[in-house]
């Protein structure tokens, strides 16, 4: 009888097995860290600001007309200081590069295990499905966040070393003292991280739906682009507010003086709702589906 009572608490598990101890965060982090695409992704985040920095050294000197709007103004300001250089690096990567990187981290994580066939062995450990997803999601998000931080950190470091610790200036605001500017920059990063949750959610949902990692990553990026295109069509009117990408550039409002948070708040709501929806669907689907890979 004693035997049966101990067995009933552990569910008949092997000695040392606890469902909550399976697939520790660190183990999954190491699994992903050893992958080439993780290393390349993060490495590029470090490399990009340096490439931009080098590119700025090839200053032609000739004025090529300027007047390309706000982008040009931010580009012109990029060399005015480390903070501005960081801002520029973020600006050029926010619309596409970061989307791809986040989609890569979040879309690849489950689908690649499925395609290798290692997913079924994890589930047979058994790692509870919800736990597997939760850990995989957290690790993917951690890598996405790390990518963002690496990009900004490298840009800030390299930019400051090259252009100095100058106030943050932009065309839409008064000049901001470096400390204040750094805060704004962190705000921009934070908002970007929140907006990218949509990509993370979408890619993750696709990741548990398909066995093809490329399909999940590409699908998420494609849908993001589709949403961006639809957002350009003004005829859609108020419907555009519902698009997940509609508020993706609201972080520009964080640079103005005083800070405009209206769209940031709305964008955050939109992103969180979408991400929650996608993740909810992903969990719902994965905890019920038959693993056939």
């Amino acid at each position: 009888m004693a035997d049966s009572s101990t067995a009933s608490t552990s569910g008949g598990a092997a000695v040392g097995y606890r469902p909550s101890a399976t697939l520790p965060f660190g183990a999954e982090f190491r699994r992903q860290a050893s992958r080439r695409r993780t290393q390349l992704g993060l490495g590029f985040m470090v490399l990009l600001p340096l490439i931009i920095l080098v590119a700025f050294q090839f200053e032609s000197g000739g004025d090529d007309g300027g007047g390309r709007g706000e982008f040009a103004s931010l580009a012109d300001l990029a060399t005015s200081g480390g903070l501005n250089f960081t801002l520029f690096s973020i600006l050029v990567s926010a619309s596409f590069l970061l989307v791809v990187v986040v989609a890569l981290f979040c879309g690849d994580t489950v689908a690649s295990e499925a395609s290798w066939g290692s997913l079924r062995y994890l589930l047979a450990v058994p790692v509870p499905r919800a736990r597997l997803l939760a850990v995989k999601l957290l690790v993917a998000l951690a890598y996405s966040g790390l990518a963002l931080l690496l990009l900004a950190g490298t840009a800030l470091l390299a930019g400051t070393l090259r252009y100095g610790w100058e106030p943050l200036s932009s065309q839409v605001s008064a000049e901001l003292a470096p400390a204040d500017g750094l805060l704004r920059l962190l705000g921009v990063l934070g908002y970007l991280a929140v907006v990218l949750l949509v990509v993370a959610g979408l890619a993750f949902l696709l990741s548990v739906t398909t066995d093809a990692a490329l399909g999940a990553v590409g699908g998420a990026v494609l849908l993001w682009i589709l949403s961006s295109i639809l957002d350009q069509i003004t005829a859609l009117g108020g419907l555009r507010d519902l698009l997940p990408t509609h508020y993706s550039s609201a972080w520009l409002g964080l640079l103005s003086t005083p800070v405009q948070t209206d769209d940031v708040v709305r964008g955050a709501i939109s992103a969180i709702v979408y991400a929650t929806l996608f993740w909810g669907l992903a969990f719902w689907r994965f905890t019920r589906k038959d693993i056939t890979s």
């Binding site: 569910g11 008949g12 598990a13 047979a124 058994p126």
Partner: peptide, 15 residues
């Protein structure tokens, strides 16, 4: 699916 008792099974399924 996910029963703890699975931990007492070692498996090679489908390659």
């Amino acid at each position: 699916p996910g029963s703890p008792v699975l931990s007492r099974i070692g498996a090679l399924v489908e390659g």
